[in-house]
């Protein structure tokens, strides 16, 4: 069974009317694939039954929202990006008395822990605050716990070394059964909060905003609105980091930013 475009629209209208979740400006192909996947996964005999469940069961709604958004992430993803942050960006951030960083759309938090490791190795974690936000409360709960599957650690350790890490990566976590429990001192400076990039406003000013592989799910208008939100939330001379296939290039804020080398990191001009 494949869901029709009109049915996708019906579900999105329900989510908006009943719960205030606005997915109407998300890229459609991905959403549709995710909804089809969920129909199969949860063995709904028909679209009507899925719709009924979403409309009447708030617990299921949580699952639905979590599953139609993509929550795949990894630690030290794109090691050269982290190498650049380690070698260049942190040098600038070090000059601030208090470093405020926003991970927007952080999902289960692997990149937030990566950043905390960088900050700790640069001896900056003690004066940093990492705001980690997502629209899904359940993935934030996972991020807060800092417990990740042990099977991924080999890959993460390789990424970490490629990013310029020189410590023993396994010192950052305790292995228990098939989980890696990350050290509490890493999460001590993290603040987790639900924040919906579509509907919520700027809530602070930051020197570094990371939003990697989130904008790819938005249409052009929404991308532009979200980039404007970041612009409003970023100090002059602050840094904005996007995913490896995302760009500021065609956005309305691009004039105020300078790309840093070839990395997907832009620095805001002084005025």
């Amino acid at each position: 069974m494949m869901i029709k475009d009109a049915e996708v629209d019906l579900l999105l209208t329900d989510l908006m009317d009943l719960y205030g979740y606005d997915f109407t400006d998300y890229s459609k192909a991905s959403l549709k694939r995710r909804i089809n996947r969920l129909l199969l996964l949860d063995k709904f005999p028909s679209f009507a039954e899925l719709r009924f469940r979403v409309k009447t069961d708030e617990d299921y709604l949580k699952r639905f929202v979590e599953e139609i958004t993509v929550n795949v992430t990894e630690m030290f993803r794109d090691p050269s990006f982290y190498r650049y942050v380690r070698e260049k960006v942190l040098k600038v951030l070090a000059t601030y008395p208090l470093i405020r960083i926003w991970h927007a759309g952080c999902s289960t938090g692997e990149e937030v822990y990566s950043m905390a490791i960088l900050l700790q190795e640069a001896n900056l974690l003690h004066k940093s605050l990492l705001y980690a936000t997502d629209l899904n409360p359940d993935v934030l709960e996972k991020a807060r716990k800092g417990i990740f599957p042990l099977v991924n650690m080999k890959q993460y350790s390789e990424n970490y070394i490629l990013s310029g890490g020189t410590h023993e990566f396994s010192d950052y976590y305790t292995a228990k059964y098939d989980h890696a429990i990350f050290n509490k001192e890493l999460s001590g400076k993290m603040i987790f909060a639900t924040h919906n990039l579509v509907s919520d406003r700027s809530f602070n000013e930051f020197q570094l905003i990371l939003c990697r592989n989130v904008l790819i799910y938005f249409d052009k208008d929404l991308q532009d609105r979200v980039l404007t939100l970041f612009d409003q939330s970023l100090d002059a001379l602050g840094f904005l980091a996007l995913g490896s296939k995302e760009t500021l290039r065609f956005s309305t804020i691009s004039n105020h930013y300078i790309q840093q080398d070839k990395e997907k990191i832009w620095r805001k001009k002084s005025s």
Binding site: K28, A29, S30, R33, V70, V72, I216, Y217, K245
Partner: peptide, 17 residues
Amino acid sequence: YHLLIENDKTFSLDYSE
């Protein structure tokens, strides 16, 4: 990345499973 094709004949990227 997964490469998806939208109905308006543009590309989108997806980093799902």
